[in-house]
Design a protein around this nucleic acid. Structure first.
Lengths: 338, 338
DNA sequence: TGCTGGCACTCTCCATGGTCAAGTGCCAGT
DNA sequence: ACTGGCACTTGACCATGGAGAGTGCCAGCA
């Protein structure tokens, strides 16, 4: 028995099942693919594939459907990369080009990704902790209020307003601004946070309460988990494609979306390239019929955050992977230009 | 035939149907409510209510379910206001108290509202056009870049970075800042935008290109539709309660959520108090089995934006209305304190 | 005039059972 | 090593036939 043909059969099963959503039998498989052998031969191959755990039967007299292991094999070794059509490339480009700020880039990418893949799209906002400080501004408002603004390398702007116990002199504000700028610009945020702490000592004891208040708030902003974990979700209407059983197929995904922490874990710390997590590989019981395709994006070589899609395990992997990869590249480029 | 009793029957039908989700017949209705009459009498009343369009039968030999008109009557004249439990009040309070900025207030309210009502919750961000300018900052960054920051009365902070054709002098920046501040602080944003336009003339011709660039960007920020229409959505997992038929019950709602414009229309320009839109009253064909409960929220008497919930028409109106009202009041208070 | 008990009727729901088609496993033959 | 053939399994589909819930209506009663 030829090993090659057996893998061809597996590929054919995955492709047919993905497009028809129905268990595929030996006959209908031959109708769609020229394998040059008879149904009986296919049946033997199928039996072997089933023994090895790549496919299974929903019930005795039905066709076969791929298992998670089967999809995994398909993704790793059988799928041929499907290039995006020029129209799709253009769609991504024109859609993203109009963005005016980081927020807008994220919103738009989530839309375009959902539309391209017909799945639920997730885009994580550029991580604060992985960015560097580009600019810091300290501005006195009315009374003892002070506005702090941080601009990061990815173009993200974070601001905080605090109320001091006493109104600072203009000179002090200027001094604080320039020393903070000197200490932190160009640093990664976590490191900048450390530098700030060291800086308090360099001020006169009288000024320290004010300096401490400002520095503490900035430090919090630098290491703010909440804003580091922000994500945008889109394409939830595509949940229709997940299956007809609401409780087992759709509800778990909606719940995961509500729990942003779960979503972030799903996207995972994709180190660089495309990551595909199939069924139980997601590490969540309730998402066993779900697959996640994700990719890091960033400026040049440096990963800023992650984006991806969530769909049923029976998805068109080559197309989805191509779309996720392409959007990740474009988003990275957009943020680099900024 | 007593009109009073007929309305009692309608109330009983609504209450039973909401809690059981099944058509209610004359017998089971008497089991749960002491109406002091026989089933036959109830049947006569039901027939009359059906003639008037308040209830209907899904099929000949089934119980009755309320029509949109029936729910409307219930909401307008029959429902007794259900006060929130102390535990619920406390939940809202503790949940919202921890918020650090406007963004956080909105995120938290959407969560608490979804949890209280077990429905899909929607909160519109405080409207820019209905706020006043509290503070404006113009800061020179490196090169010819300038950072503009607007702080509104509701505590919202908008910022924009622009690149000028030429590096402005520090003196010019200071001048621009003070004149803009003078012209706009305390004004509503649309009016502030008008004032800005008039201001350009007061500068020396040489400075006008720079002033114009800054003023134009600020003006755009003041009247930015995109950020005026931002909304947060939560509790989508509660869509499970909408019904079992995905395509007719759930998908339309998901699609409405994707189309933020539709959502905003749904929330509507609730002028002040609680607004309830039932079924076709939403003005959307596909949402005919959906009801929207919304309320404006704001500082004191001034409406800032709207929040509410989307649920099936067979919802617990008194409870939902109480929750929406309470959250709206708390959110208004939170933003006023700011 | 309004309420009640009774009765025939209608319609959905569900369990039953039989047929059909798809698909399988296996075996003997090439 | 592949193929054709055949017996077998099983879910999907459909018609059938109670059972149960609920109705409308009528005649009788306060």
């Amino acid at each position: 028995m030829s090993d090659d043909r057996r893998l061809d059969v597996l590929r054919a099963i995955v492709e047919d099942y993905v497009s028809t959503q129905e268990p595929v039998g030996s006959r209908s498989l031959l109708d769609r693919h020229q394998l040059g052998v008879s149904p009986a031969t296919i049946r033997n191959d199928m039996a072997a594939l089933e023994d090895e755990g790549y496919i299974m039967q929903p019930h005795t007299s039905a066709g076969r459907i791929p298992t998670d292991k089967g999809y995994r094999m398909f993704v790793d070794r059988l799928a041929t990369v499907k290039a995006l059509s020029p129209a799709e490339r253009r769609a991504i480009e024109t859609f993203l080009t109009g963005a005016v700020d980081v927020d807008d880039v994220v919103q738009r990418s989530v839309r375009v990704l959902a539309q391209l893949t017909n799945q639920v799209a997730i885009v994580q906002y550029p991580s604060l902790t992985r960015s560097t400080v580009r600019h810091i501004e300290v501005v006195a408002l009315e009374g003892a209020r002070v506005l702090l603004v941080v601009i990061t390398s990815s173009g993200r702007v974070e601001q905080r307003i605090i109320e001091l116990v006493e109104t600072p002199t203009e000179h002090l504000i200027g001094e604080i601004r320039s020393r903070i700028t000197h200490a932190t610009v160009g640093q990664r945020l976590p490191e900048a946070s450390l530098r700030l702490a060291d800086m308090i000592e360099t001020f006169a004891p009288n000024d320290r309460p004010i300096v401490t208040a400002i520095v503490t708030t900035l430090s919090q902003t630098f290491t703010n988990e909440r804003s580091d974990e922000r994500i945008a979700v889109g394409g939830t209407a595509n949940l229709a494609r997940f299956g007809s059983d609401f409780d087992t197929a759709i509800k778990p995904v909606l719940e995961a979306i509500e729990e942003q922490v779960v979503l972030l874990k799903l996207l995972g710390e994709a180190t660089g390239g495309l990551t595909v997590r199939i069924g139980t590989e997601t590490g969540h019981e309730s998402l066993s019929s779900t697959a996640v395709v994700s990719s890091a994006y960033g400026l040049d070589d440096q990963a800023l955050a992650t984006l991806g899609t969530v769909g049923p395990t029976r998805m068109d992997y080559p197309a989805t992977m191509a779309a996720v990869g392409a959007v990740a590249r474009y988003v990275g480029r957009m943020l680099a230009d900024n």
